[in-house]
Amino acid sequence: MPEPETPTVSAPATPGTPGGPLFSSLRVDSLSYDRKSMPRCKCLPVDTSTWGPPQSCLHDFPTPDVSLTRKLGAEFVGTFMLIFAATAGPIVNQKYNGAETLIGNAACAGLAVMVIILSTGHISGAHLNPSLTIAFAALRHFPWVQVPAYIVAQVSASICASFALRGVFHPFMSGGVTVPSVSHGQAFALEFIITFNLLFVVTAVATDTRAVGELAGIAVGATVMLNILVAGPSSGGSMNPVRTLGPAIAAGNYRGIWIYLVAPTLGALAGAGVYTAVKLDADDVDPPRQVRSFRR
């Protein structure tokens, strides 16, 4: 009689080692809500062929994997880091007679955005900007019900960072306030355009499955640097209401503040809306190629 086969016994898994593959083929998107669980945008008539039954912007979002408390904590820390770095550059430039230069100021903000997106984007989305949060909610990439909490976290983080800078660099806080050095109309146009540019890029890398989402931090940080190099000497290159609001409160300088509250919000809505309107449909492109990622 043939001997019964001895079943093969696999070696026990090392404690703490996952049973599946270490790296999933799914990429982690920064800046936006989980795109796989989100319905297609139905707030703007840009793709009527995909419209279905009307859904509520407040209640049709599935429960997120990360608790809102953790998201708000990450958003607070990220916004604090951004405002501290982006405002400290111009303050140091003022205190030490131009030691930073315009390129240094742009690098402070751009590098801060990059590292924050790469470190907290998987937790809160790393919005860091009320204009971005509102634009994403308007285009159904983020639930409206979480918008007020995000804005409160962003504003409070900006105020805390600004008063921390005031305590460290007093009396040079005025150097970190974004105020127009041109007419209000020119400053408004600049802030609108550079925020349009920023949200066009952010919407591309954060919401489009065909974009290289793994490079979101680098792409957005580079866009911030470019915008500040263009508009920094004229309008301050804010692109973000809380970049202006917190330092303005700490320094007591509110000159032209309405520009930095209105123009970035309108520019963000326009930039995100235009990319949503021009992006390719699934039927318009070949199957996406596998992209090598340096992110886990």
Results as ranks from 00 to 15, higher is better:
residue 222 A to Q: 06
residue 153 A to C: 13
residue 94 Q to T: 11
residue 35 R to P: 07
residue 59 H to E: 10
residue 274 V to P: 01
residue 34 D to S: 11
residue 89 G to V: 02
residue 225 M to K: 05
residue 62 P to M: 05
residue 77 V to H: 05
residue 243 R to I: 01
residue 54 P to D: 13
residue 142 F to E: 04
residue 228 I to F: 04
residue 191 E to C: 04
residue 124 S to W: 12
residue 262 V to M: 02
residue 13 A to P: 10
residue 157 A to R: 03
residue 74 A to Q: 04
residue 269 L to N: 07
residue 133 T to D: 05
residue 239 M to A: 01
residue 272 A to F: 13
residue 276 T to S: 13
residue 160 C to F: 14
residue 67 S to C: 10
residue 3 E to F: 13
residue 33 Y to S: 07
residue 292 R to V: 02
residue 92 V to G: 03
residue 82 L to N: 06
residue 55 Q to V: 10
residue 180 P to L: 05
residue 238 S to A: 14
residue 185 G to P: 02
residue 102 L to P: 01
residue 186 Q to G: 04
residue 6 T to C: 06
residue 55 Q to S: 10
residue 197 N to K: 02
residue 286 D to R: 14
residue 166 R to W: 15
residue 5 E to C: 00
residue 84 F to E: 03
residue 268 A to E: 02
residue 230 V to W: 12
residue 231 A to S: 15
residue 265 T to L: 15
residue 232 G to C: 06
residue 164 A to R: 04
residue 83 I to K: 08
residue 216 A to N: 08
residue 93 N to V: 00
residue 291 V to E: 13
residue 32 S to H: 14
residue 76 F to N: 07
residue 126 A to S: 15
residue 171 P to M: 06
residue 88 A to H: 04
residue 141 H to S: 01
residue 144 W to H: 02
residue 4 P to I: 05
residue 233 P to Y: 08
residue 215 L to E: 01
residue 18 P to A: 10
residue 55 Q to D: 12
residue 51 W to K: 01
residue 87 T to L: 01
residue 224 V to I: 14
residue 96 Y to W: 12
residue 144 W to S: 01
residue 39 P to Y: 13
residue 47 D to N: 14
residue 191 E to T: 01
residue 218 I to Y: 10
residue 170 H to E: 12
residue 3 E to L: 12
residue 133 T to F: 06
residue 223 T to D: 09
residue 272 A to T: 15
residue 155 V to C: 11
residue 129 N to K: 03
residue 80 F to M: 03
residue 155 V to Y: 08
residue 64 P to T: 02
residue 242 V to S: 02
residue 50 T to Q: 14
residue 241 P to I: 07
residue 37 S to L: 13
residue 197 N to P: 00
residue 7 P to M: 08
residue 171 P to Q: 09
residue 150 Y to V: 00
residue 236 G to Y: 10
residue 177 V to Y: 06
residue 88 A to Q: 07
residue 35 R to C: 00
residue 60 D to H: 15
residue 144 W to C: 01
residue 183 S to L: 06
residue 117 I to E: 00
residue 208 D to G: 04
residue 43 C to Q: 15
residue 86 A to D: 09
residue 12 P to F: 06
residue 189 A to Q: 06
residue 61 F to N: 05
residue 174 S to G: 10
residue 244 T to P: 04
residue 67 S to R: 10
residue 155 V to D: 02
residue 184 H to Q: 07
residue 264 P to V: 00
residue 233 P to R: 07
residue 255 R to A: 08
residue 225 M to D: 02
residue 186 Q to A: 11
residue 80 F to V: 00
residue 7 P to D: 13
residue 90 P to Q: 09
residue 127 H to K: 09
residue 105 N to D: 09
residue 47 D to L: 08
residue 59 H to A: 05
residue 219 A to I: 02
residue 179 V to Y: 13
residue 209 T to I: 11
residue 70 R to E: 07
residue 153 A to V: 11
residue 97 N to S: 11
residue 174 S to Y: 15
residue 31 L to E: 10
residue 98 G to W: 11
residue 31 L to V: 13
residue 2 P to S: 12
residue 104 G to W: 06
residue 32 S to P: 09
